[in-house]
Amino acid sequence: MGHAYRAVGWNSQKRRYDKALALGIVIYLALFVGVGFAIHPQATAETLLIRALGTGAFLLLHLVLCIGPLARLDRRFLPLLYNRRHLGVATFALGLVHGVISLIQFHGFGDMNPLVSLFLANTRYDSIAQFPFQPLGAAALAILFLMAATSHDFWLANLTPPVWKALHMLVYLAYALLVAHVAFGILQAEQNPLLLGLVVLGVVMVTGLHVVAGSAESSADALRPPRAEDGWVHVGDAGDIPEDRARIVTLAGERVAVFRYNGKLSAISNVCRHQNGPLGEGRVIDGCVTCPWHGYQYRPHDGASPAPFDEQVPTFRIRVDGDAVYVHETPLPPGTPVEPALWSPEGADA
């Protein structure tokens, strides 16, 4: 949470996640180089390392991009989302080493500054087959650097979540640049259909998952309860909301999470202040609504994080008529206390 600056808020889960990530990267690089030498004994270590690092970064970026839609489609993928930013930083690190070694290998021994040579050695921008693919990779790396450098909660808090999120949307541009880097680079020279097949599979997976998840979200947004004249909207029946869980409804263009807990009902914004995570998909733990993405907590009756934290989300007025739950569509300022509606299954049956 955002109480004070810490370099990384380590916990046992993050340590396990990062150990598994580091181990996976080392095994991948070792396997790639080892198998590469077995198949192509004349290949140089630099060439194999460049390819291992490049493919490793490309694979990791696919994983990073698939986690979001997978978590939207199936809650079982939520644990992967928890520490996704470390995957993103690892992607940048692999890409950076790939870029530096490539720069030395292909541009470091001429009479021109390697960084200048990178952009001027090939200027066939009018050719598809000989399109300069290296500047595409450099541009993608610059975006990944920007994202890795601002990945910390310090920047998230200072830039504000909407700006931070918009900035990190650049990952899609970076992905497109990297697909072009691969398509105009190694795929022009490498005839092995396996490589082409893997790239096509990756593109289909990433774009397909995003389109499917996006369509599901869009359909959910389209299901809006009928609007009442006085601003009170019937959002469903209390009995349909599981204990310590929420029903998510779309009111006035944004989602609201209606939680049932301890014989009470409260409505708060569905948008977590941390990374805009879906609060309504979380649970009430220790009396607080807990975001499923990173565990940020808010009290259900006033949308404020418990002390010493200071995050707040908008709240909504709520009332119950028998079993029917009504929420007023006008959001109250973040942190505004609202009297919870009282409800019990026995009362509703009576």
């Binding site: 990433v206 995003h210 996006g214 944004e254 948008v271």
Partner: peptide, 21 residues
């Protein structure tokens, strides 16, 4: 996630799904 970002995500996904293939 806020509604405007959801829309931006969806539009970006559709553009990528067409442009990358």
């Amino acid at each position: 996630m806020i509604a405007s970002l959801r829309r931006a995500h969806r539009r970006t996904s559709i553009v990528l799904a067409v442009a990358l293939p």
